[in-house]
Amino acid sequence: MKKALLAAATLLCAPLSAQAATDTGPMRFVMIPKAVHPWFDKANNGAQAAAALLSKATGRQITVEYRAPQTADVSTQNDIIERAIATHPDGLILDLLDEKGNRATMQEAVEEKIPMTVFDSLPPEGMNITAVGADFCEQGTLAAERLAKLIGNKGEVAIMMGVPTAPNHALRARCELKVFSKYPDIKVVATGIDNDSIETAQKQASAIMQAHPDLAGWVACDAAGPVGIGQAIRESGKVGKVKEVGLDNLNDMLQLIRDGVVDSSASSRPEMQGYWAVIAAWQKALGQQTPKNIDTGIDIITKKTLSK
């Protein structure tokens, strides 16, 4: 994949070579995710890889500064965005917590003529901003459909809702519920809230499995939830009896799939999102047109795909 990305970036560089040759000063981008979280660290890895590759390809020093809020709170994120605007970077790469709540602050960036790119989220309506990411609804739908198939389209299932205030978690939950409602023999008997904490997810999942001994399967709406659920399944000795289809590709998640505790995971591609967000931001900074959406797709990770 790296080779393909390198080739793509080289192609992107080609039409800009004249401009790049005349302007060789350093370029600085600031990346602000939703919060401190391993998923965003992976996105940052992709962003740093893109910066390194662009530096090599263009001969300009291109850096990405990663500034994550300590908590997933819109006002905290707005504060960090404003402080980043104060440093006048060449571009902002944002994972918005709430496009409406972030709008006023993003307007300040527009007034300061700082181009923006968003990843893993949608930009506010009416703003000409490239969005890099996967379809959250599709991700939830794929996970729920796979679980339905695993349990033979019947039985009791539960959903771990993630952070109830996070729009992407809420959207995945809605789409998962929509899938299950298509199957008359599948009943959603419980929903938990883990607030994107593995420990909370484990406690909630253990309690729900105690209350519903016939539970057949789990899906989740965030990255931490499915890890906690997997640990609870293992602790309660229900490996194989209770099926789980997780989300995303945290290391713990991958290990649970390797161990056979979790069947699979519908995973977005954080490294790729970070990578393409930097590419788009860089092009925007050079005054190039960028696409409205860059869909980085969803992987279904299974024990088989991991062994390849």
């Binding site: 908590t71 709170d73 819109v74 006002s75 707005n78 709430d98 409406k100 709540g101 709008r103 006023a104």
Partner: peptide, 16 residues
């Protein structure tokens, strides 16, 4: 005032 600032009433207001 935070609601007026954000233009939305976020349930997470006050967490910090």
């Amino acid at each position: 005032v935070m609601v007026a600032r954000l233009g939305t009433a976020q349930p997470s207001i006050g967490d910090t």
